[in-house]
Amino acid sequence: MWNKNYFYTPAVLVAGHGPFIWGEDPAEAVHNSVGLEEVAEMALNTVILNPSNDGLAKLLMDKHFFRKYGKDAPTMDRVR
């Protein structure tokens, strides 16, 4: 399995269940739930507009992830 860091993934969708969302405090968990709703809506609209869409290329996903969390990313004090 992957070495997962809950900070990088503050929400998950569980098949046949629903979302699990967390944060450092209840307000952050609510903030993360709003983000999950937005991402889910964008994903649904993407599929509606283009059912054959294969998603983002790994290169592009890595670029965005490492820009925020990579070794040269700003410290978390400046991100929040």
Results as ranks from 00 to 15, higher is better:
M76H: 11
A11H: 01
W22K: 01
V12H: 02
N53S: 10
N5S: 15
M1H: 04
M76T: 13
A27F: 12
H17S: 08
V79M: 13
L36C: 07
A27W: 06
N53I: 00
P51V: 04
A27L: 04
A27G: 14
A57V: 03
P51Q: 11
L44A: 10
L44K: 12
V34I: 15
L13T: 02
L44H: 09
T46V: 05
D62C: 15
E41Q: 13
T75A: 06
R80D: 03
R67W: 14
D62S: 14
L60E: 14
L44G: 08
E41C: 15
W22D: 01
D72I: 08
N45G: 03
M76G: 13
P19K: 02
K58V: 12
L59P: 00
T9V: 09
L49D: 12
H31E: 04
R67H: 14
A27H: 03
R67V: 12
A15M: 11
T75L: 09
L44T: 09
P19A: 02
H64L: 14
R80P: 02
L60C: 10
L36D: 04
A40F: 07
M42E: 08
Y69G: 01
E37L: 11
V39P: 00
R67S: 15
M76Y: 11
D72T: 09
K71D: 15
A43V: 09
G70V: 03
Y8L: 05
N45L: 14
W2D: 11
G70W: 03
A29L: 01
D54Q: 09
S52W: 11
V30M: 07
W2P: 02
G55V: 06
E28Q: 02
A29C: 05
S33P: 00
E37N: 13
Y6K: 14
L49G: 11
M61A: 12
G23T: 00
F7D: 12
T9E: 11
M1G: 12
G55L: 01
D25L: 05
R78K: 15
V79L: 06
H17W: 06
T75H: 06
D25W: 02
L60Y: 14
V34M: 10
